[in-house]
Nucleic acid binder design. Structure first.
Length: 484
RNA sequence: GGCACCGUCGCCAAGUGGUAAGGCCCGGGACUGCAAAUCCCGUAUCCAUCGGUUCGAAUCCGAUCGGUGCCUCCA
């Protein structure tokens, strides 16, 4: 099982084709993802996107790339201001306003990071907060001004999209199409063109602000990603990702800012994750089908079953989340976990019908190749999982008849670990020590079985089941157990 | 109005020109004291509908129906 680096292909929103990811630096991937706006709990739709990005990152790492991942935390934004400034008097100081904003965002940042951990989403290498990079954003805006791609109006600064011919290339919009659809958030700002977007917003009364060359204000939404991404990942980023809703205007505007400033393409590969629906309907608070991770955990859902559900769908297809699907995921995971446990133990050959003998190591290598080919083809996780399941079926059948050797079992376990490094849903169960009560019950059942006292044996087994322990009698007369 | 995407077994889902992967659920059988786990057998002659192209299409083209997204804050 050598770890050779594989070329992975992904759909590139820029070209609308599946293209190989050829990093700027051999073997090294710079990866930027748009993170959360921290003013509330993340819902499962948000989490689908972060999970998809985690899967992408883990796949590259498992394919022997070094990935540097940067995910921003948006901690200054309209809704944050709305939700954090309410209790303050009209004459509150700027310091007090910032403090109130920080209290809200720090709280929800911590909650967000906990949610990621619950879903086994690996933390990004860089988690920059927008408020800590204001000077860099100001410098970027100034540079755009110098290049005549930005102009100031009443303390705000706007991007002049007419200065960038390729504006619209990501969303594949033409200027005319945009004009007609633009329902202008014109408010009090004066722009040269309604589609010009704001880089720096002049402070309004009641808002926290920073000093800038244009007076007190705060950054526009799009500028933070450009500024922090370029500062932390450099002038050429291999992959940039987010939900499909960010294609326009957010990513389009990032391109305008970054490419406009650099004079060359900033990001090579744009990858976007699809949305999620709930029970066939759009997820909405008003529809009563709005879920956060915590809502599901409270209902007793295994977070890894949610992880599995999301990963068993292709990232570019709308996922229809349902509780029935969640149950199916739990059962699918059980099959993999039971198989893993079986491989950890020793084989118990038996008789009975079977199709044909296998050479386990050959079969394993074949499955492993198919698994990787699926992932390398635009992250086809459903296909990769299918390969895993057919391998499990084949090896279960084989092991029923000709027990796999220790060496073969270990090779299978190594592959399960390799796959779990990506899917993160069938980990090594730490062999928890049984408490005294459970041990005594297992012994009691053994005794009852020996005495052929079946009602008593069944009674004890039921009691254990209530405690979450499922017994499995083996062919040699011994009894195994697992948590159910 | 403009631009895209999707419609495959009860549910989820791969396959995108060569004759329907996989998972869940379900039925029958084997194993078991009974279970659990596992295995074996079975479960879409057909891929929304209607036309067309082709030796051949779920896969290409056209139309129709149905669902979704973007064009405005949004994972």
């Amino acid at each position: 099982m050598t770890k050779s680096r594989r070329v992975l292909s992904l759909f590139n929103t820029l070209t609308r084709r599946v293209e190989p990811v050829l990093p700027v630096k051999e073997g090294y991937i710079s990866f930027y993802t748009c993170g959360p706006t921290v003013y509330n709990y993340a819902h499962i739709g948000n989490l689908r996107t972060f999970l998809f990005q985690d899967l992408l990152k883990r796949t590259f790492r498992a394919a022997a790339y070094t990935v540097t991942h940067c995910m921003n935390i948006t901690d200054v934004e309209d809704k944050i201001i709305r939700d954090s400034q309410g209790g303050l008097p009209a004459d509150a100081t700027n310091e007090a306003r910032h403090e109130a904003m920080r209290a809200l965002t720090e709280r929800f940042t911590a909650i967000f990071l906990e949610d990621l951990e619950t879903l086994r989403i690996q933390k990004a290498d860089h988690l920059p907060k927008a408020t800590e990079y204001i000077p860099g954003m100001i410098r970027l805006v100034q540079e755009l001004e110098t290049k005549h791609l930005a102009y100031e109006r009443d303390g705000s600064v706007y991007y002049r999209i007419s200065g960038l011919p390729e504006y619209g290339c990501l969303a594949h919009l033409d200027r005319e199409g945009m004009q007609s659809g633009a329902s202008v958030d014109a408010d009090e700002y004066e722009r040269d063109s309604v589609t010009d977007f704001v880089l720096w917003k002049a402070a309004k009364p009641g808002e926290p602000w920073w000093d800038s060359p244009w007076g007190p204000g705060r950054p526009g939404w799009h500028i933070e990603c450009s500024a922090m991404g370029m500062e932390l990942l450099g002038d050429r980023v291999d992959i940039h990702s987010g939900g499909v809703d960010l294609i326009f205007p957010h990513h389009e505007n990032e391109i305008a800012q970054s490419d406009g400033c650099l004079g060359h393409r900033w990001v090579n590969h744009w990858v976007h994750g699809e949305f999620l629906m709930v029970e066939g309907q759009k997820m909405a608070k008003s529809a009563g089908n709005f879920f956060t991770l915590r809502d599901l955990v409270e209902k007793g859902v295994d977070p890894l079953a949610l992880r599995y559900t999301i990963q068993s769908n292709h990232y570019r297809k709308v996922l229809n989340f349902s509780f029935e699907g969640l149950r199916a995921a739990e059962n699918s995971l059980k099959r993999i976990r039971v198989f893993r446990k079986r491989m950890e133990g020793e084989g118990q050959p038996g008789a009975g019908p079977w199709k044909e003998g296998l050479e386990p190591l050959t079969r394993l290598e074949q499955a492993r190749n198919a698994f990787w080919n699926a992932l390398a083809d635009d992250l086809n996780t459903p296909e990769a999982l299918a390969e895993l399941f057919t391998l499990i079926s084949d090896l279960n059948a084989q092991d029923d008849h000709v027990a796999l050797t220790r060496e073969e079992r270990d090779a299978v376990l190594a592959f399960l670990d390799e796959a779990d490094a990506i899917f993160a849903a069938w980990p090594h169960e730490t062999e928890a020590t049984l408490d005294a009560e459970v041990e005594a019950l297992i012994e009691a059942r053994r005794a009852a079985k020996a005495a052929k006292n079946w009602p008593e044996a069944d009674r004890v087994r039921d009691r254990l089941k209530e405690l979450g322990i499922i017994l499995e009698d083996r062919k040699d007369g011994s009894t195994g157990w697992r948590r159910g």
